[in-house]
Design a protein around this nucleic acid. Structure first.
Lengths: 221, 221
DNA sequence: GTCTATAGGCTGATAGAC
DNA sequence: GTCTATCAGCCTATAGAC
């Protein structure tokens, strides 16, 4: 499954012959039909597994009552953690599916991007309602935030290849996480707009779920 | 070419048989080999054409001496204009290429994403140097900004399909452009941080190149 | 320039030996 | 469970008639 995920992410479903997956996994190509029921089923299984992990993480955050800006920052860190430590190819595969319009997936899996969207929207809506976020549109905010994230993680391979000797900063995940969290702070939070006073950071909250020590926890700058 | 672009964007290079392109274009499939020299050449021609348009627009902006925040906002509007009025499938195709690591394209075309990256970085670097932008990392800023844009335009078809009866806002291009420009204003510009005073908008500049009336010109809010 | 017919290559799945 | 051999389908490209 890991071998297949990498190949599917890199070349797309139609671009990967079954023999390539078998070769990379060090097994016989007939075994894939035997154990997974064919190429399409293998793909489906991988997608379900990977997308499910991301969705459940995001929905867990959306169910929290903590301040919306903190949740959004944790979302960034969570997403980074999933893709770096669990399934490196989720977002490439997810993005390919979204580009295809979700035609290839069975309904249950195809709905997962929509659940992510709904969860993020819920967080943003509450933040706007409670005044911790500026008056931003939840859908557009979701698209710009998640768009940045998905784009970054899905294109990591490309950057590694083309930015070899040319550019200064090698794409560093934790730096990117901090950058996005910083943009959330400056671009989305309502810091003191109603008072005429100097901009100030919003109050810190102790982390709701113990110190997992992720990349750039919103309370760990 | 338009027919092929749409199909390539939707299903990917490997997912589109030549007969499908021929059928959609209303021509015989042998004509594609005759006029373009085969499927791969057709793809290459389309990619070169579409990517070139975007790159030249962005590089033109990067060569301007106007304030960096204005340039970034115009970049957003320009990108939106190209994809809505000229080639609706550029970003889907571009994104697919980036996901593939640029392996399919000849070097000249593959370098175009890098030129976009370099141009945006140049704008951001100058903005930071001149103090019109906060002290942000140029590469990370490029990735988050362009990532949002590319993601938005590349996934428009998906949204139209899945957000049919479910969600309030149908994805509106001009609203998204304004949203991103707003994020640039709040998240990237250095508005009065050195003075202790109230946040204020940066000074307006008259548009450098006549009133083209694009979606959300930075001076047309 | 346009079309039909076909060649030639590659792919996914599986029958059947072990 | 695993492997080899093979089949049937689909794809691109082109030869050759018009």
């Amino acid at each position: 499954m890991a071998a297949a995920a990498e190949l599917f992410a890199e070349r797309g479903y139609d671009g990967v012959p079954v023999w390539a997956i078998a070769a990379k996994a060090g097994v016989n190509k007939a075994m894939i039909s035997y154990h997974f029921g064919g190429k399409r089923n293998l793909y489906q299984t991988i997608a379900e597994d990977a997308f499910g992990e991301v969705v459940s993480r995001i929905e867990e955050l959306a169910d929290s009552a903590r301040p919306a800006p903190d949740l959004l920052k944790d979302l960034v860190a969570d997403v980074a953690e999933v893709t770096t430590k669990r399934s490196p190819h989720v977002f490439t595969m997810l993005l390919r599916e979204v580009l295809a319009g979700g035609k290839r997936l069975e309904p249950g899996v195809a709905g997962k991007p929509v659940r992510m969207l709904a969860a993020v929207q819920r967080i943003v809506e509450r933040g706007v309602r409670e005044g911790t976020l500026r008056q931003v549109d939840p859908l557009l905010t979701h698209l710009s935030l998640v768009g940045s994230l998905v784009f970054f993680f899905a294109t990591e391979r490309f950057r590694r290849r083309v930015l070899k000797g040319r550019h200064f900063t090698p794409p560093d995940v934790s730096a990117f996480v901090r950058h996005i969290q910083d943009l959330i702070t400056h671009g989305l939070t309502a810091h003191g707009e109603e008072s005429g006073s100097r901009v100030e950071r919003h109050a810190r909250k102790p982390a709701a779920r113990g110190g997992r020590g992720a990349h750039g926890r919103s309370d760990g700058r």
